[in-house]
Design a protein around this nucleic acid. Structure first.
Lengths: 350, 350
DNA sequence: CGAGTTTCGTCAATCGTTTAAGTTGGCACC
DNA sequence: GGTGCCAACTTAAACGATTGACGAAACTCG
C-alpha cells in the first residue's frame, strides 16, 4: 500500500465522503448495481433500487463528480463567458442561465473577460473547454466573434447571448429591430416630427440593429434621420449625448438605446432646463427595475433578461452534440413597450 | 481491450485532447517527468523542463482537470453562492471574486439561490461541496446563516461577503458603521437638525449596522432619532418611503441606505413637489455608477464592490486548510463619502 | 577519480467512477 | 426435465492523471 488513507482505514463510517462501494456494501449489492441505479439504467429490480437509494440516503452519499466526468467523459458542467456582468441585463441573464442549467442537473462555471476582444473571448472559452465543460454560453454584445470560434476546442457546443449574426454559432437575441420600431413609432404616433437617437458603442451588435431599425422606421414615415449620437451604455455617456441634444432646439423626441444612457440624457436635459416630456420626449431600452423611478418615469422597451439566459442554457442542454451550426435562425425573445411619463405629444400639439 | 478509442488508436496526432504520455513521448522523457514539470516539482533540469514545455505547447496540451482532481484531491475550483446577483453590488463582487480566483489559477462555479434562507444557502453550498470545490464564497447580506454552516460539508473553507457576525465563518464586509456615520455627520454638519433614515430589509446585516451607527451618531449630537422607514433595496420601496417622508414637513435630511432606494426617494419627493436639496437633502449608499446622474446628482457613500469580491477569494485562496474559524475579525473594506448635489444646508440657513 | 548529489526512468498503486463483457438464477416452453 | 432466454448481478478494464519508492545514469566537487 502506498498511500494510507488514515481517515478511511480506521474502522467504520469515516467522516470522509462515502464511496460507491460503501453504498453497495450497505445495500448488500455490488457496486455495479449502485452505479446502475445512479445512472438510472434498466435491469434493476425496483426492490433493489429502493434498497440502494436508502443506503445512499443513509450515508449521505453524493457521487464524486471528478471521477464521474473522468470515467464517462461527460462533465455535467456548462461554462459562461461574462463581460461586464455588473450591468443589470447580463447579470440577470447569467442568473437565468444558471437556473436553467441547475434545473437540468448541470453546474455552471464562469470566466470573465476584461475586454470584449476576439482573443480575450477565445481565451476565456478555451479555459472553459480545458475545464471540461460540455457547453459554453457567451454573453457578448460584440459584433465579430464568429471567426474566433472556428478555432474553438472542437465539439463543444457554443451559444451566444445578444450575439452577432456573422458567426456560425447559434444565438439568443431579443427582438432588437422590433423594439426600436416600437420606440420610434411610439414617438412618431405622439406627433413628433422626427426622432433622434442615442445608440450604444459602435461595433456592438444590439446598437447596430436598433439603429438600422430606427432608420427604417423613420424612412417608412418619410422622415429623414437626424444625426446619430453614440454612447457606451454608461449614464455618463448618455449625459454627454444629452447635452448635445439639449442644445438642439429641433429635437423633441429621443430614442436612447439603453435605460442607463437614458438616465444620463434625462440628467443632461434637466441640467439644460429642457423639460421632459414637455419639451423633449425620451424612450429608453431595457426596462431596468429603476426605470419607473427616473424623473420622469421612463417610457422604455422591456426585454426579458432572465429568459435570455434560460433559453441560452436550454440550447446547450438540447445539444449535447454540437448542433447543426449553420446560419440557423437565432432564438428571438420578444420585447414590449412600457409607456410611462417620459413621453408625450410635442408641446405645440397640446 | 474493452473500449476502443478509435480517434486515438489511429496513427499519430489525433484531434482528441493529447494526454500526458503523448507529451512525454514527444519530449522524449518519461511521463513521470512531465508530471513533475506540470506540478513544478524540483529536480528537473531547466533544459528538460523547457523541452517538456515546448512539447506541451506544440501539442496544445492542457491537463485533464477531472483526472487531476480525482488523483490529487485538489480541485482548483472555488464556488460562489449568489443571491440577487443582478444588483450592481453583488454582481460586481462576483466579478472581482472570479478575477482573483482566475489569477490564482482557480476556476469559479456559481449557484444562485432564489430566496435568502438558511436552508437555501445551505443547499447551494452543499451542491458546490459535492461538486468538489475547495472553497466557497457566499454573497449573503442576511443575518443568520452562521448556524447553517455547522452542518456544512466538513473541511471546506467558507467566506461570506457582507455576511453576518453571528456565525463562525470569516467574512469580508465594508465599513458600514463608518459609512453611516459619514452620511449622518455630513448632513448634520450642513446644519440639519435631524436626519431621517430609510434602511434595507429587516434581518439583513448591512442595514442593521448602518441603522445602529446612524442612531449612535445622532445620539452623539444629542439628536433623538426620528422614526425608521424600511425598504427592500428596490427603488419601488424607496418610493414608498419617500412618499412618507415628503408628507412630513419636519424632514429636511434623509440618509437612504442604498442608491437604488434613494432613486425612489428622489422620485417620490419630486412627485410631492419637495425640492432636493432645497427642501430635503438626500444621501445614498453604494455609489452606483448611475448615482452621479440622478436628479439631482446623489451624494452617497462609496464602497468598492470589486475589491470585496477579490478579498473574499483571497481569503479562501490563502486558506486551503480551513482557517482558524474563531470569531475572527472580519476583513473590512473602507468607504468614502462622495459629495454631490443632493445635499445642501437646510433652506432656512441659506 | 571516487563520493555525494541531482536528475530522471521504471514500476506500481490509487483516486471513484463508468461501461463492456461474462456469469448466474429462474422461469417459460415444448 | 433439459433447452433457451432474459433479467439481474459480478468481474474486470479503463478514464488520465498524482504520488511514492527505488535504482541508474549523469552531473558536481574536493
Amino acid at each position: 500500500m502506498h498511500r494510507n488513507n488514515i481517515a478511511r482505514s480506521g474502522g467504520r463510517a469515516s467522516s470522509a465522503r462515502p464511496r460507491l462501494t460503501e453504498v453497495a456494501e450497505l445495500a448488500g449489492v455490488s457496486y455495479q448495481t449502485v452505479s446502475r441505479v445512479l445512472n438510472d439504467q434498466p435491469n434493476v429490480r425496483p426492490a433493489t433500487r429502493r434498497r440502494v437509494l436508502e443506503a445512499m440516503e443513509q450515508l449521505g452519499y453524493a457521487p464524486n463528480s471528478a471521477a464521474r466526468t473522468l470515467a464517462s467523459g461527460r462533465s455535467l458542467t456548462l461554462g459562461v463567458v461574462c463581460y461586464d456582468t455588473a450591468l443589470y441585463g447580463p447579470a440577470t441573464a447569467l442568473i437565468g442561465f444558471e437556473q436553467a442549467a441547475r434545473a437540468a442537473g448541470y453546474s455552471v462555471n464562469i470566466v470573465s473577460v476584461e475586454t470584449l476582444t476576439q482573443s480575450a473571448i477565445l481565451d476565456a472559452a478555451t479555459r472553459l473547454a480545458q475545464q471540461g465543460v460540455s457547453g459554453i454560453g457567451i454573453i457578448s454584445p460584440a459584433v465579430s466573434i464568429g471567426d474566433a470560434f472556428a478555432h474553438m476546442p472542437p465539439h463543444i457546443p457554443v451559444v451566444s447571448l445578444w450575439g452577432p449574426a456573422d458567426g456560425a454559432i447559434p444565438r439568443v437575441v431579443v427582438d432588437e429591430a422590433h423594439g426600436a420600431r416600437l420606440a420610434t413609432e411610439h414617438l412618431l404616433a405622439l406627433g413628433h416630427r422626427s426622432v433622434s437617437i442615442v445608440v450604444g458603442p459602435e461595433g456592438h451588435i444590439g446598437p447596430d440593429v436598433r439603429m438600422r431599425s430606427w432608420r427604417e422606421t423613420l424612412a417608412a414615415h418619410a422622415v429623414s434621420p437626424p444625426p446619430v449620437l453614440h454612447g457606451d451604455w454608461s449614464a455618463q455617456s448618455g449625459y454627454a449625448a444629452g447635452l448635445a441634444l439639449a442644445d438642439d432646439a429641433e429635437v423633441s423626441a429621443v430614442f436612447v438605446t439603453s435605460d442607463q444612457m437614458a438616465l444620463g440624457v434625462l440628467a443632461a436635459l434637466h441640467a439644460r432646463g429642457r423639460r421632459v416630456p414637455d419639451d423633449v420626449s425620451v424612450v429608453g431600452f431595457d426596462d431596468l427595475p429603476e426605470a419607473a423611478f427616473f424623473i420622469p418615469a421612463l417610457t422604455t422597451i422591456r426585454q426579458d433578461f432572465n429568459q435570455i439566459g434560460r433559453r441560452a442554457a436550454g440550447i446547450l442542454l438540447d445539444a449535447p452534440q454540437p448542433p447543426a451550426q449553420g446560419k440557423n435562425a437565432p432564438l428571438v425573445v420578444p420585447v414590449t413597450l412600457m409607456h410611462r411619463a417620459s413621453t408625450a405629444p410635442p408641446s405645440k400639439l397640446r
